[in-house]
Design a protein around this nucleic acid. Structure first.
Length: 492
RNA sequence: GGCCCCGUGGUCAAGUGGCCUAAGACACCGCCCUUUCACGGCGGCUACUCGGGUUCGAAUCCCGACGGGGUCACCA
């Protein structure tokens, strides 16, 4: 707990230009926990790697988090009492701490060059050994160090990790963890360019920012002992740790950039809803303990409990996400759906004069992901080429002959409906009257009709709806075309 | 390879020694509804990785094996 017992969590992404779903989930849990505990959620940008700097990347982080409904209490753009919240702007704060560690023997200057280290590492690998920095520069006398410093020799500062004994800590998810110290490497704290490494900045900042609970990916499980050694060297209180199981693509791979399935933006572009994504993501690695599956952000805050976090990695199941998405779409206000689906309609129906409102009514419960909409409605804009076989449907008891009869039956009925009376109700009543009187079954007439005007086996809505959407001229045109197709098939 | 973690159906998962001849959801399959599809309703399929213990009793505790993941950077 912080000084006044307040919980403080942080999300500390590096600005790469994209928001990884695993990272988003980490942010979500940090946010939920802070809100749940009535604490503070802090955003910190970790941009100590200058080579990886990407223009506009921080905005992507802001937009994604805000878009998902996770507003931070302290951060680069909103300020706060322990700023700045961008590590590059804190650059000068770290070196003094590193020097303090050097003074107390917990760290030391190292003048080995990257090139030398690489060679030693490769040599070790060739021998089948694990490379570990051999504390070579630790044996330099204070005079030797000073001389090199005075000469302007490039240096880094390394942690002086113990080589014997063990280091333990308690994790709120994984329980008690113990690591042999001889597996700990002397990690670099300050890089040759004067910037702190993530490993160092993270500890300093978490302490200075009063972070009480560090929630991050399980990949940090084994580097945590080194961080704790740092806290102890400074005499600082170690935060609570909450390591999160990874989000996988399948049992062997994490969600990856290469497959185009790792980033928040990938899903938004495909037409997934933010609410669905957040709702689903919350459930990969955590569950409320009962059967509830649908949660708003506020409800999530209400039920979230660190004790219910899972340890095993979770596979990100796009099918389940898609189901959530479809459910959210079905439940959304019609006006919002219409506004969202319109651009997708436009891709294939722009300028065709289709009644979007009616189409949207038909489509809302059939939409799973917006990017599947164009293919579903394209037939309204242009009759697809189709095979006569489509007229044959066993259950509907139709075949080309029945279909021909059916279309011949429908054509005059539809021709007789005036343009200004071309409504679904009218279409329905006139057609049904005729079908009754013919003695044919509904399906025997309606199936061929729908095939003729849509050219495909499955459509959003039935024959009446489609005929209405198409309008009189286009409907009649398509029926005549269908009759022609049937005729040429008969001749062949 | 060293160290660490994990292991219930295809996937997410409930389960904290007896209520488990193991819930729920997604996916899949079948039936019903129906002018197609979708929605909806009903039903079905499929799991405690394996082997030893401990115990009257184990998915639950212990040990081992196997499998999977993570980590071993002047990246974060």
């Amino acid at each position: 707990m912080g000084m006044n017992g307040e919980v403080r969590t942080r999300f500390a992404p590096s600005p790469t230009g994209f928001m990884h779903l695993g990272g988003l989930r980490t942010a979500l849990y940090n946010y939920l926990f802070a809100r749940k505990m009535g604490g503070k959620f802090i955003l910190r940008i970790e941009d100590t790697d200058q080579e990886r700097y990407v223009e506009g990347a921080t905005e992507v982080i802001y937009d994604t988090l805000r878009g998902c409904g996770m507003q931070w209490d302290e951060g680069p753009d909103v300020g706060g009492p322990v700023g700045p919240y961008i590590q590059s702007e804190r650059k000068d704060m770290y070196l003094p701490y590193a020097k303090q560690l050097v003074k107390t023997g917990h760290a030391y200057y190292c003048f080995c060059t990257e090139c030398e280290l690489r060679q030693r590492r490769e040599a070790a690998e060739k021998r089948g050994e694990v490379f570990k920095y051999d504390k070579h520069c630790l044996s330099l006398t204070p005079e030797e160090v000073q001389a090199k410093l005075d000469a302007g020799t490039p240096y880094v500062i390394r942690q002086n990790a113990p080589t014997e004994g063990t280091t333990s800590y308690h994790d709120l998810v994984y329980g008690d963890m113990t690591f042999p110290n001889d597996t700990l490497d002397d990690m670099v704290l300050i890089k040759a360019d004067g910037m702190p490494t993530y490993n160092f900045a993270n500890v300093i900042d978490d302490h200075l920012m009063g972070i009480t609970h560090v929630m991050r990916g399980a990949e940090y499980l084994s580097s945590t002992p080194k961080y704790n050694l740092l806290y102890e060297a400074f005499g600082w209180e170690v935060p609570q740790y909450v390591h999160l199981p990874s989000v996988m693509r399948d049992s062997h791979h994490k969600l990856s950039k290469r497959d185009g399935d790792a980033y928040y933006s990938d899903y938004v572009e495909k037409g997934y809803l933010t609410e669905a994504l957040i709702n689903y993501l919350a459930l990969v690695g955590w569950n409320p303990g009962d059967d509830r599956e649908f949660f708003t952000m506020d409800e999530l805050v209400d039920v979230f409990d660190v004790a219910r976090l899972n340890k095993a990695p979770g596979i990100f199941d796009v099918d389940k996400l898609t189901w959530f998405n479809a459910e959210y779409i079905r439940r959304m206000d019609f006006d919002r759906y219409l506004a969202m689906v319109t651009p997708w309609f436009d891709r294939v129906l722009a300028g065709k004069g289709i009644d979007y409102t009616r189409l949207a009514q038909l489509m809302q419960e059939r939409t799973e992901v917006f990017n599947r909409v164009p293919d579903m409605v394209a037939f309204l804009g242009k009759l697809p080429e189709y095979d006569v076989d489509l007229y044959t449907h066993k259950k509907m008891k139709t075949n080309p002959e029945v279909a021909t009869t059916a279309l011949e039956l429908c054509l005059p009925v539809l021709e007789n409906i005036p343009e200004d009376a071309w409504s679904e109700a009218n279409l329905h009543d006139r057609l049904m009257e005729k079908i009754q009187e013919s003695g044919m079954k509904n399906g025997q007439v309606l199936w061929p009709l729908r095939i003729a005007i849509s050219g495909q086996a499955s459509t959003p809505g039935g024959a009446m709806e489609i005929a209405y959407l198409l309008g009189k001229d286009e409907t009649l045109r398509r029926i005549r075309e269908g009759m022609k197709l049937l005729e040429s098939a008969r001749e062949a």
